[in-house]
Amino acid sequence: MGDPDSRTSQFRKGAVELAILALLASGELYGAEIVDRLAVLPGLAVTSGTVYPLLGRLKKAALVDSVWRESPVGPPRKYYRLAVAGKRDLAEMAASWRDLSSAIDLLLQGVDTRD
């Protein structure tokens, strides 16, 4: 309850879902590629251990589809892409994310975090 780390990881998870949808909006990617693209953003702090289960969830929720594609090296890879519902969801989530984050930013401006 009082552990800030676990609370941060709770809202980070929702953000990572949105981040995955946003990434897939520009084209299909396979799992490790998604991890790579997100891992370069330090604020998200993701690993494959958080991304793969979320991909499974997004797929179950029919927000993303997956397809097998031949790979130039090794066996076929599973690629993920936005489903129709995912596009819709992304638009809605992006709008509410912007509203939410500007509201929280505004509130946090008055908070002294140094003490």
Partner: peptide
């Protein structure tokens, strides 16, 4: 799902 992603990685 994990196996597919892990293999590609």
């Amino acid at each position: 799902e994990l196996e597919a992603n892990l293999l590609a990685d």
